[in-house]
Amino acid sequence: MPRPRRRKGRPLLVLALLIVLFPVVSVLTTALIPPPVTILMLQRLAAGDGLDYRWRSLNRISPHLVASAIAAEDARFCSHRGFDMEAIQKALDHNDAGGRVRGGSTISQQTAKNVFLWPQRSWVRKGLEAGYTVLIETIWGKRRIMEVYLNVAEMGPGVYGAEAAARHWFGVSAADLTPQQAARLAAILPSPRRYKAAPPGPYVRRRAARVQANARIVRNQGLATCVTG
């Protein structure tokens, strides 16, 4: 009698192991090769947006865009371990006060969501996002996280990543982005389907000016050294 019971338990054990191992294997794999198309890309493609996704190594992406992304999205990117508790608390306080809803996600969290998960908000997704964030911080490291982020982030309707966005908006390669162009791309990251990097509207011009000024602070204070060395 004990043997059949052990056999019945084996499928559950195998399933549990697969559930644990799948995220680890997927993160290990994408540490070495570019991620394939993401769930968001497929959803947008099905909706008729098209798909322009051109992988470029971080060495072929302008450091101006690295600084601008940190300035716009995650000023403490190099100093946190995936979660910026101060930014999360500020976002909660802001939202409780009845202001415009603001998120506190780091670049690491956004990358985990973009690559491995779906865009719709839910507690399940947020829980999985936290787990994947810990994994990529541990396995990938900051430089790889930034490289993947700048390659898969949505930067326009059907446009993903620095190279496709640089070509789409400015007709240049990602390596040749100027500080102003990089700031404009970073400025539209929160709502890339609503705003245009070129020609920029009043909101994007104002936000890009702030991003460009803060990007200079990022460079001058060494806030991007975990990526640029």
Rank of each mutant, 00 (worst) to 15 (best):
M1F: 11
P2G: 01
P2K: 04
P4A: 00
L13V: 01
V20P: 05
F22Y: 12
V25C: 09
S26H: 04
S26R: 09
V27Q: 12
L28A: 13
L32Q: 10
M41Q: 12
L42I: 13
L42M: 15
R44N: 06
A46R: 15
G48A: 02
D49Q: 14
D52Q: 13
Y53E: 10
L58R: 13
R60M: 11
P63I: 00
H64D: 14
L65Q: 04
S68E: 08
S68L: 06
A72Q: 05
A72M: 04
E73N: 03
D74R: 05
A75Y: 13
H80C: 06
G82L: 14
E86F: 07
E86K: 12
A87T: 02
K90Y: 03
K90L: 06
A91P: 12
L92H: 07
D93N: 13
A97E: 12
R100V: 01
R100G: 09
R102G: 00
T106C: 10
Q120G: 01
Q120K: 14
R121P: 13
W123C: 12
L128F: 02
A130V: 15
T133I: 02
E137H: 03
R144F: 01
R144L: 00
N151L: 14
V152I: 15
E154T: 06
M155R: 03
A162D: 09
E163N: 12
A165L: 11
R167F: 07
W169K: 13
F170I: 06
S173G: 07
P179D: 05
Q180T: 07
Q181N: 11
A186D: 02
A187C: 05
I188C: 08
P192I: 05
K196M: 01
P199N: 04
P200H: 11
P200M: 11
R206S: 11
R210Y: 15
Q212P: 11
A215S: 01
G222N: 03
